[in-house]
Design a protein around this nucleic acid. Structure first.
Lengths: 210, 210
DNA sequence: GCGAACTTACTGTTCATTCAGTTAGTTGTC
DNA sequence: GACAACTAACTGAATGAACAGTAAGTTCGC
């Protein structure tokens, strides 16, 4: 199997190099954006030569797409089971708050851990999603869970989904400007906990009064 | 006064040229971002030669700052009176919903009319606000109004302010990706009206149960 | 006619991509 | 199990395109 770890580390290993390049590219693309992240800097950070990223990925554009693709796969892998658990919890117990806590807590944790996803999705949104194919533009799993937990009671479900994603996404997206100006840091434990509580409060109250 | 319109249009008018350059730059910076918006394209769109933007503004960076500055001045000019009216309405009548309707409706209208501001603030946020000086990173007027309308009742006022801005900002920021995937368009009359109603509902319910 | 507005051709830099060459790893042969 | 033959990983210098900035020159408004 190709992903099995060899006991003697090879000096040449395409999988390892690919991974290092993807890691470096993810960091620099999310931090500086497509144009200001250069292939030489990505190579330097990955510890490979300037030609290797193009050799493996066929160009800067394809490398960027590969970074996005990997993140989206990871997102679905993390959020689908989470959303399913939250919905099942709600449907079996009928306790809305507990289900929302499960969902929102997991969602916020994921965004905080993989900030690169938030930043790259933000950049994609501003660029018209030109690198995103037909793939899901935000987690379908979270949207689906919210719809199920809301039930048929509330009027416009789309508005509710937008609101949920907005409430969780926004602080991370605008952490360096708006939150910094308020003396807050979305990446801190304290803020994340407070944010989760607030978002659950908001959603519970909105859903509570159908 | 320099802004008075001369009855015979001059072929050379620094104010007019500056304005045309700022308009073109605002459009292209907000649409494509700092790096992909080129000075030659800005010049072409403004109907001037490639050297003029640098002649007037001293370089691409300063031009970008000038665009941001003009937008921020406009934002304060629009939102300060609005916020003041909303707060006064609330403090004289005690009717929270009417005050929120005034504030949110005006805020959403402004964001929709000046989408360039939303997009540029989004870009700035992702770039660490490197072009933003010490100036306000989001409307201080709206934040202040929300705090006043909320009263001392609700716990964490910062969370409420973040939530308010997030709810209004997010659909415009992610219009090309998330909303497009939902078949919605934040720029349409219908959506804007529905969004306003939803945001006011949310805020009213959150504030209602202090 | 003088100064500000404006143009145009040019310069230097940055960067993605290419490619000829080098070396590590693998496979087959005896 | 050693050695040759081969493949794939990897390098780094060269190339050319794109672009911001410059400056010498031209034209307009007063």
């Amino acid at each position: 199997m190709s992903s099995a770890a060899p006991r003697t580390p090879r000096r040449r290993d395409a999988d390892v190099s690919r991974g290092a390049i993807l890691d470096a590219a993810e960091h620099l693309f999310s931090q500086f954006g497509y144009e200001r992240a250069t292939l030489s800097e990505i190579s330097r950070l990955a510890g490979v030569s300037t030609g290797l990223p193009t050799y493996f990925f066929g160009g800067k554009d394809n490398l960027y797409r590969a970074v996005l693709g990997r993140l989206i796969v990871e997102r679905e892998a993390r959020l689908e089971p989470l959303a399913e658990r939250a919905v099942r919890s709600f449907e079996s117990t009928g306790e809305r708050r507990a289900a929302l806590e499960l969902l929102i807590s997991g969602y916020v944790d994921f965004l905080r851990e993989r900030l690169a996803l938030v930043r790259l999705m933000g950049r994609e949104a501003l660029d018209g999603g030109r690198h995103l194919g037909a793939g899901p533009r935000h987690s379908a799993a979270v949207a689906d869970a919210i719809e199920r937990i809301a039930g048929t009671s509330s009027g416009d479900v789309d508005q509710l989904v937008i609101t949920t994603v907005a409430l969780c996404f926004f602080p991370f997206e605008h952490n360096d400007t708006m939150l910094a100006a308020m003396g807050r840091d979305a990446m801190s434990e304290d803020f994340a906990a407070a944010r989760k509580r607030h978002v659950v409060d908001v959603l519970e109250r909105v859903l509570g009064a159908g």
